[in-house]
Every structure is written in C-alpha cells, then in structure tokens.
C-alpha cells in the first residue's frame, strides 16, 4: 500500500484501553497555560499480556523525554534538541515540543512500564497485571 497508513483493524477506542484525551493529531495545542505543543502521532497495540505505544518524536532524544504517571494518567513530553544556529531559508518543521496525554487501562501494571527511544520513535511497553493475563490451567 504506497503512501498510506495501515487502517486499524478494530476501532475500539476509549473502551477500557489506552485512551487519548484530545482528538486532533499533529497540531499545536495550548497546554500549561501559554505553551504550544505538538501532538505526536502514535500507534497503540494490545496483546494478551501488554499494551505497546509507539510515538513519533523526531528530534527528541533520551534527555528531552519526560514521561510521567499520575493517577492512571500518562503524560509524554518530548523536548527537542536546540535548532541549528544557521540562517533559515525555508522551514516546514515546527519548533514546539511534543506533548500527549493518555488515560491508562486500570489493568496496566504501572510499576512495570518500560520506555525506550530510538531514532525519534518512543516505544512504551505497558504490561498488564498478572491477574488479568490469560493463563492456561493444566488438568492433572
């Protein structure tokens, strides 16, 4: 499929899942008073034992990443490294930092969330607690 996005196979949004708080992808939004943020594009997957969130944060490295969790609300902030000091002839990219807020499924074991960032892609693994994971019961 050239130049397209893979359509989500299920549109089960907000349903006990990692939910999104604003519905405008990739545009500036005012948050924290006057600061403007960009909403990063994300993919969210669910497997039987975890959720996986991938967010596009071009220009953000490990030091510029700030992931915080408060009462099942996950906030991702990505600060970009400083712009090159050269003379701008033409510019399409935005200099604003990234921010996006998600409400987490209560089934997520918040103590075990793991994050890594590679080439501008944040990969967040959100494991579910043991008791909600499917398990096989063997018959003696």
């Amino acid at each position: 499929m050239p130049g397209g996005r893979a359509p989500p196979r299920k549109r089960k949004e907000l349903m006990n899942a990692v939910a999104q708080q604003n519905e405008r992808p990739v545009c500036a939004q005012a948050a924290d008073g006057e600061r403007e943020y960009l909403t990063p594009r994300v993919n969210i997957f669910e497997t039987p034992d975890r959720y996986v969130l991938e967010a596009e944060l071009p220009g953000v490295n490990k030091d510029g990443l700030d992931i915080s969790l408060d009462n099942n609300v996950l906030t991702i902030v990505g600060r970009r490294t400083a712009d090159p000091g050269a003379n701008v002839l033409y510019r399409e990219s935005e200099s604003a930092d990234f921010r996006r807020v998600f409400e987490l499924d209560p089934a997520i074991d918040t103590g075990k969330i793991a994050a890594k960032i590679d080439q501008g892609i944040l990969n967040l693994v959100l494991p579910k607690t043991e008791k909600v994971q499917p398990r096989r019961i063997s018959v003696a």
Binding site: M1, P2, G3, G4, R5, A6, P7, P8, R9, K10, K12, E13, A17, V18, Q20, P25, V26, R41, V42, N43, I44, F45, E46, T47, Y51, V52, E54, E56, L89, Y90
Partner: peptide
Amino acid sequence: KQDQTYAAAETYRSERWLGRFQRTISLP
C-alpha cells in the same frame, strides 16, 4: 515498512505513516 512485531495484536491507534515518501528541494 510495516513492522510485523505486532501484526497479530489488536490495533487501537494507527496514526503513523507507512510506505513511501519523496521530497524534492530546489537548492538556491
């Protein structure tokens, strides 16, 4: 290219672009 790692998983959001891109810029 599509990452096959989560091909079997349920997809809640799919906002990231896949596939080809091409940009051309005229140099001054």
